[in-house]
Design a protein around this nucleic acid. Structure first.
Lengths: 212, 212
DNA sequence: CGAACCGGCCTTGTATACAATAGTCTGTCA
DNA sequence: TGACAGACTATTGTATACAAGGCCGGTTCG
C-alpha cells in the first residue's frame, strides 16, 4: 500500500474526521475512486482498514457507510476509553522515567504559555502537545497492545471530530489535568495516576456531551 | 464478501488458530489463493481483515506474516482482557435479567453433567457453553463496543490456540467460576461480578502460562 | 386496490493482466 | 577476497473487465 492505497485511506479518513463525509453517508467505491484519483482496488483496501478502525460500517454486497454514533455509543466509547487510559496511566506510574517526565513538564508549561499569551495557533499547539503527552504515557506504560486499542477507540470517538469546539478555559483545565498526571507519575502512585486519567477522560466526555 | 472472500477469511483464520500456519510464517498471497481455491483478490481482502483482527502482521510491499506473540504480549493481552471482561461483568450485574440467568444456570449444570459423565464430546460441550456464557454476559452488559473489543482480544490471544490443553480439572474450575459469576450477577453486585471475572481470566492466564 | 413477481440497473465481488518494488544473486573491480 | 553495482526474480500493488447479487420500479394477477 505504498502510494494509492495509503493515500486513499488517509483521504477518506480525513474526509470522515473533518465531516466531508457525514455519519450515515454511503461510501460508493467508484465515487471514492474518482475522488481519490485511483482505481477501485485501493479504495477497497482503504475501506477494509476503515472498517477495522470502526470508522465505517461495512456489509457484504451492500457497501460501506460512515459509522454513526448514538449518544449511547459515545458514552460507551468514553467509558471504555477511561478504562483503558486509566489502566495505561497506572502502568505508566509503575514504570515512569524522570527524563520523560521532565520533558512533559516542559511541554505542559509551553502549552500554558501558548494559551495565556493568546497565540493564534494555540489550538494546534494544544492538539500537538496533547497527542505527544498521551503518546508518552503509552511509551511509559510499555504495552503496544494498549496503544493500539487506544488508537482505535480515539479514532472512533467523536473526539477528533469535536475537540476543536473546546473553549480556552477547557484547554486550560485539560492541560492542568496533564500537570496533575505528571505529579502522580513522578510519585509512582498508580492509583492516583489512574484516577486523574479517568477523571480527565470523563470530564472531556461531559464537556462534549454538554456542547451538543 | 459473500462467498470467496468470506471463505478465504475463515479458512486462513482457522489455519492460524489450528496451527496449520505457525506464528512467523509468511502468508504469500498466491499460495493462499491456490490453497483456498480463489484468486488473489479475495485473499487480499481476507488478509486485511486478519490484520484488523491482529492475527497477522502486515507490512507494505512485504506481505503478511502470522502474528507471533511473546510471553510479554500474551501477558498484556490477558491483562487487558481482564480489564475489559471485568468491566463487562460489572455492567452486566447492573442490568442482569433473571430469565437469562436461569438459562445460564441450566447451561452450567449441563456442563458439569457432561464433565462428570465423561462424555466423549465434553470439550466441545464446554467450548460451546463457554462461548454462549460469555456472549450472554455481553448481552447483559449492553455494549456492542465492548463485545467487539473483546472479540478482537480473544482472537489474538493464545486462548483459542491452546485452550484445548485444559485438563478436565481446569474445565471444572472454569465452570465453577461461571457459577460464581451467575451468583454475583443475580445479586446485582457489580464489584463482586467484576472480581470473579478478573480472577477467572487471570487464572486462565496462569494455567496456560504454566503449560507452555 | 394491493401484493407479488419479474426484469433492468446500480453496486459490489472476483479474476486476471500488468506495473512496481524489495530482496537476492552474481559478476566485476579495487 | 570483499564489497558494491547491476540485473533478475519473487511477490505485492494497481487497474480493468467481467460476473453476480441486491434493490427498485413496473406490471400483472388475484
Amino acid at each position: 500500500m505504498s502510494k494509492a492505497s495509503e493515500r486513499a485511506y488517509r483521504t477518506i479518513r480525513e474526509g470522515i474526521l473533518r465531516g466531508r463525509f457525514a455519519p450515515g453517508d454511503r461510501l460508493v467505491e467508484e465515487e471514492l475512486a474518482e475522488y481519490c484519483g485511483v482505481s477501485r482496488t485501493p479504495i477497497r483496501d482503504a475501506i477494509r482498514r476503515l472498517d477495522g478502525d470502526m470508522l465505517v460500517r461495512w456489509e457484504p454486497n451492500r457497501g460501506a457507510v460512515v459509522a454513526s454514533l448514538s449518544d449511547e455509543d459515545v458514552g460507551d466509547l468514553f467509558e471504555i476509553r477511561a478504562l483503558i487510559e486509566g489502566h495505561a496511566a497506572r502502568r505508566a506510574a509503575e514504570r515512569a522515567d524522570p527524563a520523560t517526565l521532565d520533558r512533559l513538564d516542559a511541554e505542559v508549561a509551553a502549552v500554558f504559555e501558548a494559551l495565556d499569551s493568546g497565540s493564534p495557533y494555540y489550538m494546534e499547539t494544544f492538539l500537538d502537545a496533547n497527542a505527544r503527552f498521551h503518546d508518552a504515557v503509552y511509551d511509559m506504560a510499555g504495552s503496544e497492545r494498549l496503544r493500539e486499542i487506544r488508537q482505535r477507540l480515539v479514532d472512533q470517538s467523536v473526539v477528533l471530530r469535536t475537540v476543536r469546539q473546546f473553549a480556552l478555559e477547557d484547554l486550560r483545565r485539560s492541560n492542568m489535568h496533564h500537570a496533575d498526571l505528571i505529579a502522580a507519575l513522578r510519585a509512582g502512585d498508580g492509583q492516583w495516576a489512574q484516577s486523574v486519567m479517568v477523571a480527565h477522560i470523563l470530564a472531556a466526555h461531559r464537556r462534549l456531551a454538554g456542547a451538543e
